[in-house]
Write a protein that binds this DNA or RNA. Structure first.
Lengths: 252, 252
DNA sequence: CGCAAGTTTGACGCTGCTCAATCACTGTGG
DNA sequence: CCACAGTGATTGAGCAGCGTCAAACTTGCG
């Protein structure tokens, strides 16, 4: 059932049936949550880990002037802050951008899972490293690219991540439950300028965006004009490839 | 001897004598390297971990247009990419900004250390989480703050990190081996604008910067005007505090 | 039907970029 | 000891990308 999480982790490490069963077991009790609710708030010390089964979440923090910066999206199959227990409190909040199905996993259960299945622990650490890598790309995106490239780059990333969990249809269309204000807070721009940038992307025949449906009309050209190289997402590597490396050097 | 690394990790977890000795043992053979040399290059799969004993390093990548984005500095006591072995290749490069003393630690030795001392492993993971947290703050900095705040924020961060390894003197002065071009590539600005921003910081009585000596004239006010809150660096927490948490939930 | 939230448009101004010249400092060789 | 080159810092003029402010329009929803 829990395709997304297993799909995601299997990309990093080959999992056996027991491990897959254990991950599936996690998902037995999802419950619905509403858009706008927070999963975790900055400054708190969460007692649960959350697994997103459906819907979108986002990491953000608020500044004193009321500005908000978004620095990551959680898509279906994403597990948030497995390792937060190592730090004393959250340095950012996690909220929901859409109606969502969420599994709440008590810390103890998560730790037990990790202790019983070192390969799952390893896969979760790899996921953490990939998200750090993604964060670096966001710094590059905001720091070095202009509004047009920056927006295109974000869409390329989301398109690849959504495709990796099977949520992009054959027309390269997927659900993007973000307002222009949220895009603005992600890209370090104003919503007015996001609006104008979207118009340029549309005029260029690169995308279509109506309400929450985004279509990437020309993925290749969009990646080209926005300087996107998705290798940092590490979605293409086979589990074999990675497990070879781990056999060589890391499995204990 | 290896004060910086031990100081740094002790902040996260209380280390016993054996662990401290093991860390010190790592540092037995530092060798000098020149400014401008790379420790690790993007796309490669490094066979060593590097421990910086003296000097500054930086993480960066180059874009097709020749632009460079810097997304982190390595200060004395910093260990780079302990976990890179979990991924297949580096997604960025690490270079040196000054003459440096560097210890090269073969992967096997590092893995052995980690296996023998789980608390060291844990401390290294915490360091990774802190650096991820720092990266989020950089996104906020570049995305939401204007040039003046942005530059001040960076200086506050570096001042705190340098102080944590005992490299700030009593006048709040420390070595900042960065050209204005490097500051520009860090902050997502041009060097011309960095120059003008530095002048404003000087005029405001906030800093002094001559060649590579930076003085924070008024740390409190600088933090105030740049919206800096250093808790994300987690330099203030006592090891006791953290180890209490680990006793409760995480030690295996 | 009317409200709320989100999108779109316009006018205008400022922050920060571009291009280019000059200045300051340091290390080098004759 | 001085001329010179190279690197980095500083300055100026002009301009454009993006922000601000404000209003109009569109869409979904109770």
């Amino acid at each position: 059932m829990n395709t997304s999480l297993v799909t995601k982790l299997s990309r990093y490490i080959e999992l056996d049936e027991r491990e897959i069963a254990a991950l599936d077991h996690l998902t037995r009790n999802p419950h619905p949550m509403k858009s706008g609710e927070d999963l975790i708030q900055e400054g708190t010390n969460p007692e649960n880990v959350f697994l997103l089964m459906e819907g979108w979440g986002y990491r953000y923090s608020l500044l004193r002037n009321g500005n908000r910066q978004i620095f990551g999206y959680l898509l279906p199959g994403d597990l948030c802050d497995v390792h937060v227990f190592m730090l004393d409190k959250m340095d950012h909040s996690i909220g929901l951008l859409s109606h969502a199905m969420v599994v709440k996993i008590p810390a103890a259960e998560m730790l037990d899972l990790i202790n019983r299945f070192p390969k799952i622990e390893r896969a979760l650490w790899i996921a953490t490293l990939v998200s750090e890598s993604t964060l670096r790309q966001w710094v590059v995106n905001i720091g070095q690219r202009d509004a047009f490239e920056r927006t295109g780059h974000l869409f390329c990333e989301l398109w690849q991540r959504m495709r990796a969990v099977g949520l992009v249809n054959t027309d390269d269309q997927f659900d993007l439950p973000l307002t222009q204000i949220e895009l603005a807070d992600t890209l370090g721009m104003t919503s007015v300028h996001v609006n104008r940038t979207l118009q340029r992307l549309r005029e260029g025949g690169l995308i279509t965006l109506h309400r929450t449906r985004l279509t990437i009309l020309d993925p290749k050209r969009l990646a080209e004009v926005s300087g996107f190289d998705g290798s940092y997402l590490r979605l293409d590597q086979t589990a074999q490839h990675v497990s070879l490396r781990s056999r060589l050097s890391l499995v204990r």
